[in-house]
Design a binder for these strands. Structure first.
Lengths: 151, 151
DNA sequence: TATAAATCCGATTTATTTAGTAGTATATAA
DNA sequence: TTATATACTACTAAATAAATCGGATTTATA
């Protein structure tokens, strides 16, 4: 599974909203774009996808913006990844049910390997929520802070 | 990591040669292409990459063709995958050393996740040799055989 | 020494995907 | 009613994928 710019942007945007989830803050797209160095109009498209999937909601007009519909602890990385990037499987024949790839579909040992890779990948991205990411981000930032302080 | 047609073809071609490795058989590209339903001219390009990497060698002229330079047990899936598909990492910043992706490279929790995914994927594709694939292929074929027999 | 069989190699082509950009419409708070 | 914001559709440029084309070169053998 490759992560495109689009997917990377989506994850950063969701993380941005996750950090503002407490108190039900509404965040305008300009802020998300500027803070994460994402092209504004491109991010619009991405936010519409996230909204269409029910992950975020929005309010128009002055004071409007985007916000998560669920708490960060209930949003898994895998959900966003699948939304933007599509299948986790490295090849279509590794899906369940498998999409036909070759005549040997019933006896192709490669297919088993790709299914293993998909399962391992899914276990990781579905095992992490945005609450986990926020926590880890804080840890990394404070460690980095400390590093500078010691110099 | 996504597997392209090119990568899929390359794996099938190497497996084809692996099955002919005993007795040092030399296999013409036409046979590999026909048996695996791979466009002949496309396969030419792929074989040249494999040869350039020292994985296979070739003999020109009548009676010529391709053959593995090493026994199947000494060729890991990961080697072919990396040759054709490039990096295993789902995003460049997950490489070691990381390629810069965002300003937060030192404190990006996503990067850690992608590194985990890359490690899990690498462990799988580097843990399997073409000898393993051949063995598994035989198992699957005989199981499939048996299945038909029982009807 | 022709000839046929085979690899070698660079260029071109076609389609798809990626990563945006542009422009307009619509909603809403003040 | 105006400024601020999202909603939506369409378009475009660049890169990548998946071949295809047209030969050049090598080699066994008849």
């Amino acid at each position: 599974m490759r992560i495109s710019y689009k997917g990377d942007y989506a994850l950063k945007a969701v993380l941005h909203l996750a950090n503002r989830y407490e108190d039900g803050e509404v965040v305008p797209i300009n802020e998300i774009a500027a803070a994460n160095d994402i092209p504004r109009k491109f991010l619009e498209q991405i936010m519409l996808i996230l909204k269409g999937a029910g992950l975020v909601d929005s309010r128009r007009g002055i004071g409007g913006g985007f916000f998560l519909k669920r708490p960060p602890a209930e949003i898994r990385l895998g959900e966003v990844v699948r939304l933007i990037e599509g299948d986790i499987e490295p090849i279509a024949c590794a899906k369940t049910p498998p999409e036909p790839c070759c005549a040997e579909i019933g006896s192709c040992a490669f297919r088993e390997i790709w299914a293993e890779v998909a399962a391992a990948t899914a276990a990781i991205v579905d095992g992490v929520t945005f609450a986990d990411i926020m926590r880890r981000q804080r840890e990394l930032k404070s460690a980095h802070q400390g590093y500078h302080y010691e110099i």
